[in-house]
Amino acid sequence: MREPSTQAPIVLCDQGRTAALLDFQQLVDAIARAAAQMEEGTIASPERKVVPLGDGGVMLSMPATAKDVGIHKLVNVQPANVQRQLPTINGIVTVCDAATGRVICLLDGPEVTGRRTAAVTLLAIRTFLAQPPEQLLLFGTGVQSRYHVQAINAVYPDARVFVRGRDLRAATDFCERHRGLHPHLEPVGAVVPEVEVVITLTTSTAPVYDELAKPGRLVIAVGAFKPEMAEIGQVTLGGSLIYADEPEGARHEAGDLIRAGVDWAQVKSLAHALRQGADQSRPIVFKSVGTAAWDLAAARVALAALSAN
């Protein structure tokens, strides 16, 4: 009986190495490519599977495949870990060669998620704004806000970033802790400053932003990922063109849009905007709900970096 040939060892990437492999500029381009391929049907990214885990936690299973590569992200979310002073999210992304099925590497799941989510925001900014932003406002002081600060610094290092938290103290603490990631951080209170981009990164169940829609101001909603959550209010949504990174997923997960009763026939995809452009003279809201296709895009970037080393 013929012995199988020896395979190359699986490359194990911890959080630090995963971060080093995932350049934000390259992630933006890879996600743009993946968005087009998902619309064409050459990336398969089924609805994620959610099963209970422990007391109040969930396990999320998210596969995606393309002609060149396949990934499976397995993420555990355990809210009770806050009291344990442990990370709320743990997980891993398995990356395999599509032709042979051989597992090539394992990436840190939370790092992939954080970076590719922020990269989707960068792609939205590039797609829906006529010129690079000079001032942005972040709602939220959690982990995803930190990734967004890193991403903004990588692409718009001179941009001024305002941060709004639960209160001014929370925003001030966030800015002080992360000044090394971006030098132009500034906490703000209730007044919304004049900015070109508003990015909401909370898990709020009530809208945190509901200003009159304003041409030239792009609103990006990232944090709300359940029907009972909502970050953007009806005043803003009612006066805006609405796009989503994955409209089908948004129908089930985007509490902002569900609560506002938007006309889903009018919600266009990110791929549509990349292909045909968008009317940048109109106010635009971009809803990001995520898909395993973006993790697959991140895996491509990581593989390219590994092969270059």
Rank of each mutant, 00 (worst) to 15 (best):
H148L: 11
G70I: 06
M62L: 14
A302Y: 03
S269W: 01
A170H: 11
E40Y: 00
R259E: 06
P132Y: 08
Y243G: 04
N81P: 02
P87W: 03
V161T: 09
V11M: 04
Q131A: 15
D210G: 12
H148M: 13
R102D: 12
R84E: 12
L53Q: 14
D68S: 15
R116C: 13
Y156W: 06
G290F: 10
E196Y: 05
R84H: 10
P52V: 07
A30D: 02
R146F: 07
W294G: 07
G165F: 12
V188S: 01
R84W: 10
V93L: 14
G54C: 09
L218F: 06
H182L: 11
D210K: 10
A213L: 08
A265F: 01
V161Q: 04
N76L: 06
A80C: 02
R84I: 08
P133A: 08
P110I: 01
G54R: 04
P87S: 08
W294Q: 14
E134C: 04
A271L: 02
L257N: 06
L168K: 09
L201M: 10
A206V: 15
R146Q: 14
V285W: 02
R164M: 12
P193E: 00
T127F: 05
I89Q: 05
P63Y: 10
I125L: 08
M38A: 11
F174Y: 13
P110Y: 05
L129A: 06
V69T: 15
V69R: 15
M1W: 02
D29S: 09
A224G: 11
K287Y: 01
E246R: 14
Q78F: 11
V222K: 03
A130P: 10
L86V: 03
H252R: 15
T202M: 05
L123A: 08
L237N: 00
N153Q: 15
L168N: 07
G216E: 06
L53E: 13
C96T: 15
A44C: 04
Y209T: 08
G140W: 01
R17H: 15
D173L: 12
R116M: 12
A224P: 04
S145G: 07
L185Q: 05
M229K: 06
L74D: 10
Q85G: 05
Q144G: 10
R169T: 09
P207N: 12
S5C: 06
A32H: 00
R282A: 00
R2P: 15
L136T: 02
H182C: 10
R84K: 15
F162R: 02
L122A: 06
G238C: 04
A19K: 13
N309S: 10
G70F: 06
T200L: 03
C13P: 03
L274P: 02
T203V: 03
A273P: 00
P46N: 09
I242P: 08
L303A: 04
E228I: 04
R177C: 09
I199K: 00
A292N: 05
I92F: 04
Q7L: 14
I104N: 00
A299L: 08
R102L: 12
A190N: 06
A154V: 08
Q26L: 11
A305Q: 07
P207R: 11
L107A: 03
I199G: 01
L274E: 01
I199E: 02
L106C: 09
T65F: 14
T100G: 13
V69I: 15
